[in-house]
Design a protein around this nucleic acid. Structure first.
Length: 858
RNA sequence: GCCGGCUUGGCGGAAUUGGUAGACGCGCUCGACUCAAAAUCGAGUUCUAACGAGUGUGGGUUCGAGUCCCACAGCCGGUACCA
């Protein structure tokens, strides 16, 4: 590749010039309600990108994919009359900056600032129409302040299960709750529990993150530690139910639904001597088939019920389980293990004594950590019972007689061996059994969720410190006064993880010491904290009085005239269950307090597909197939990379990169350029004589333009950018092959191409303005979107396909409004058709007006 | 295993939602321009010599199926004993 390939059009000159102009003139800045010049009667569109983590590697080609898509919609939306909020910012806390800092000794704030500068430069280089006045960074003290403020709101709240919303804990104080009781219901609370601890990273991780880091090669162990948790489980029901009406991909909704994992069933109380053991089951209908019970090895009653004879075996088994890693424990291929406790429980439905076992296939964190085992109708119980010779009793007779009843887990059956349930269907029996349990006081119907509370503390330096103080006397925690926010990390030389589960801030002795009575919490928040609410801060990024002013929030997030919330949110699938679940949770808490207008933050979500390397593999440094946007912009220009990424295929699909494809796009843009420009003797570009102010009438080029305006308008609305671009290529080809092109038609093409390729279109238009003073001088970006003429779309003749027995045999040129009869007769009269129908009887003639005629003959 | 998605020329992908399969682009071939090349412009390009065949495979519905239904296969993603 030669360093100085001749540019097919001078993008290297005009692209930076337009970017500079947009920047200096703040062309894409939008005000807020109440500000001068802001027309709040216009409808709004909030078009949002998932903000990037500004890594040291800079932008990769995946970023401009989603960003170009939202930019096109934003630019288009402004031109059809919306106030458009289209912001960008930085998710700038994060582990890599901290690790880099540890390695180089440079403060993470310094590297973060440098990385942000790179990202900003790269994004500006692509000509995105962000309102840079609203830029935010999660590491900015003015931002941290409000992240901590929202945390304190969580800390000071509990979930009122009757109202189904968050309420201040002060209510409970008034009701006379004790401090301990209140601490046990806070939305942000401290708990000791088994957590994912990574000795390599010296921090704990959320369940949601653990697998990801493990796959990157980090060691993750289960450790019992005291940690801050967020009570997201309180919102489990709403997080499932309120997901339903959202305009999100079904697959993402499903992913979230599965992650939250709602199941309905019952809790059943079994007695074991003086103890009561509660189990959770989704199949209360099979209670008569419960032949044994299993507790998780960590269950609190294990030691109490174990008989002296079994004590040794039970202790040994518990020890083995505790030493097992998570991975070993969940390895499905392994055989089931377990030991008998020697104890028996009484099945409340029939008074039968059933043996109690412990086994690690019963998980401690789900349900009650204890199950009733119905080996006849549960695969796992069946395997266990078979291995240990436990009895198996059939209670469901499958409807399909061919199905063996052993280990039949389906619902299509009738109850047997179940006394009063006999003859009922599974569904009926479930309801009947729950009713019986509730009446007899042996249990109750119960909804259960897989979702666990969110482990919210990290042992890192580069994160928001918790605004929490610990009382040395009482050992209790308290909120830092809001007036002291933001609470920033102390300046430290050494913030390496020390292996101390309290985190590196422990080493900042002066900082920890708050007063004689109080010390500071040393944990920091996870990176998710900042990204949980950033979309709200864009609304009012410089407000020091509130995280967002109510008036501003109401306009941009309100539901007047549209569904409300963020109108379009584009990003990758990798955030399906993390960011998108966490942000919904925080938003709901804020909604419960009336601080935001909608119960959901993101009304419409679109996932862009991954861009693979040229070799069809995922891009990665180790494979050496990473494409750097800087290189592409240098070689082909910003418009070319924007357009190429949209032309590759549907936004949502996974697709491989092909630099040859960028060349094709570059050729297309060069053709657009050369319709209006010719190079003179001196090598300078001037307006071509091909353009004329004369009205040439309904030329093929003009018709093609109007078809393109229609298609491109529709395609932007449905985000089918690839087909919009093909249509504009066809239009360009029509204008290229025309002898002469009417300036207004050429300008029409520039108008619709403008959101896709803003630089070249503005450049061409500004040059045309000089030669054709009748043109409005405003930038295309600030002019209304063009409309098309219906008349020019109408063709008066149509090509009619004639089929014989469904096979294409002839094509006829017919008047567009030809009747069914006319079309049928013309088809039968065709000589070509006669050849095929010769000697046959015409049974039927099907006519689709304007399209085809099918003759059925035999 | 379970859940979801995808499968159309040499390649990326179109197809008015049941009506001409292969738009548009890449690549390739040929031609024009050129001393030559690049760039550009023009013609062609699903397979087949042809009859015909053809949208992962097999069946079905229909005058007509890439599109609808049933079964199966392959690839990609999510999830992992959640009772």
């Amino acid at each position: 590749m030669t360093a100085d390939r001749k540019k097919p059009y001078p993008f290297d000159e005009f692209e930076p010039a337009w970017q500079k102009r947009w920047d200096e003139e703040k062309t894409f800045h939008v005000g807020n309600p109440g500000e001068p010049g802001f027309d709040a009667t216009r409808p709004k569109r909030y078009i949002l990108d998932m903000f990037p983590y500004p890594s040291g590697a800079g932008l990769h080609v995946g970023h401009p994919e989603g960003y170009t898509a939202t930019d096109i919609v934003s630019r288009y939306s402004r031109r059809v009359g919306y106030n458009v909020l289209h912001p960008m910012g930085w998710d700038s806390f994060g582990l890599p900056a901290e690790q880099y800092a540890i390695k180089t000794g440079q403060h993470p704030a310094v590297t973060t600032a440098a990385n942000i500068d790179t990202f900003r430069r790269q994004l500006k280089m692509l000509g995105f129409s962000y309102d840079w006045e609203r830029e935010i960074a999660t590491t900015d003290p003015h931002y941290v302040c409000w992240t901590q403020w929202i945390f304190l709101r969580l800390y000071n709240s509990y979930y009122n299960t009757e109202l189904k919303k968050a309420r201040p804990v002060s209510e409970l104080v008034e009701k006379g709750w004790t401090r301990e009781q209140i601490d046990s219901v806070r939305l942000a609370y401290v708990a000791e529990g088994l957590v994912n601890w990574s000795p390599d990273m010296g921090t704990v991780l959320a369940n949601e993150e653990a697998e990801e880091w493990r796959s990157k090669g980090f060691t993750i162990e289960r450790r019992k530690l005291r940690q801050w948790m967020l009570r997201i489980t309180a919102y489990a029901e709403r997080l499932i139910d309120e997901l339903e009406p959202l305009d999100w991909p079904e697959s993402i909704k499903l992913l979230q639904r599965n992650w939250i994992g709602r199941s309905t069933g019952a809790e059943v109380r079994f007695t074991c001597g003086s103890h009561v053991i509660t189990v959770y089951t989704t199949r209360p209908d099979t209670l008569f088939g419960a032949t044994y019970m299993v507790l998780s090895p960590e269950h609190e009653l294990v030691d109490a019920i174990t008989t002296p004879e079994q004590k040794e075996a039970v202790d040994a088994y518990k020890k083995v389980c505790a030493e097992k890693s998570d991975l070993e424990r969940t390895d499905l291929s392994k055989e089931k293990t377990g030991v008998f406790t020697g104890a028996y429980a009484v099945n409340p439905v029939n008074g039968e004594q059933i043996p109690i076992w412990i086994a690690d296939y019963v998980l401690t964190g789900y349900g009650t950590g204890a199950i009733m085992a119905v080996p006849a109708h549960d695969e796992r119980d069946f395997e266990f019972a078979t291995k240990f010779g436990l009895p198996i009793i059939q209670v469901v007779q499958p409807d399909d007689p061919a199905t063996p009843w052993q280990d039949f887990c389906g619902y299509e059956g009738v109850m047997v061996n179940s006394q009063h349930l006999n003859g009922l269907t599974v569904t009926q029996a479930k309801a009947a059994m729950i009713e019986w349990l509730e009446k007899e006081g042996h249990g109750c119907g119960k909804v259960n969720y897989k979702l666990r509370d969110w482990l919210f503390s990290r042992q890192r330096y580069w994160g928001e410190p918790f605004p929490i103080l610990w009382d040395k006397e009482t050992g209790l925690h308290e909120a830092l006064p809001e007036s002291e926010l933001p609470l920033l990390q102390p300046e430290m030389e050494d913030f390496k993880p020390s292996g101390d589960p309290r985190g590196p801030l422990v080493k900042a002795q002066n900082w920890i010491h708050y007063s004689e009575r109080y010390t500071r919490e040393t944990n920091t928040m996870p990176q998710w904290a900042g990204s949980c609410w950033y979309y709200l801060r864009y609304l009012d990024p410089h407000n020091d009085e509130a995280f967002v002013s109510p008036e501003v929030e109401k306009y941009w997030m309100g539901s007047s005239g549209n569904p409300g919330g963020v109108d379009l949110y584009v990003g990758g699938t990798e955030h399906a269950v993390l960011h998108l679940l966490y942000a919904r949770f925080w938003h709901k808490v804020l909604f419960d307090y009336g601080l935001v207008s909608t119960n959901e933050p993101f009304n419409k979500l679109v996932n862009q597909g991954l861009i693979l390397g040229e070799d069809g593999q995922k891009m990665s440094k180790s494979r050496g197939n990473v494409v750097n946007p800087d290189d592409i912009v240098r070689e082909y220009g910003a418009d070319a990379i924007r357009l190429y990424e949209m032309f590759m295929g549907p936004l949502k699909e996974v697709k491989p990169w092909a630099t040859k494809g960028v060349e094709g796009i570059s050729r297309f843009l060069a053709r657009v350029w050369r319709i209006g420009m010719v190079e003179n003797q001196e090598g300078a570009w001037e307006v071509s004589a091909k353009l004329t102010e004369q009205d040439l009438g309904a030329t093929p080029a003009r018709k093609e333009l109007h078809r393109s305006i229609k298609k491109v308008t529709e395609d932007i609305e449905t985000m089918s950018f690839n087909t919009a671009i093909s249509k504009m290529m066809e239009c360009t080809n029509a204008m290229t092959s025309a002898e002469s092109v009417c300036v207004s038609d050429y300008v029409g093409l520039l108008h619709i191409l403008n959101p896709f390729a803003p630089h070249i279109t503005e450049e061409l238009y500004s040059r045309l303005c000089v030669s054709f003073p009748a043109l409005p001088t405003a930038q295309l970006a600030l002019q209304p979107w063009p409309s098309y003429s219906e008349e020019l779309l109408v063709e008066n003749t149509r090509e009619i396909v004639v089929q014989v027995n469904g096979k294409l045999r002839d094509k006829l040129q017919m008047a567009a409004d030809a009747s069914k009869e006319e079309l049928g007769q013309a088809a039968l009269a065709s000589a070509r058709i006669k050849e095929f129908t010769d000697g046959k009887t015409v049974r039927k003639v099907i006519v689709v007006p304007g399209r085809l005629v099918n003759i059925v003959a035999s």
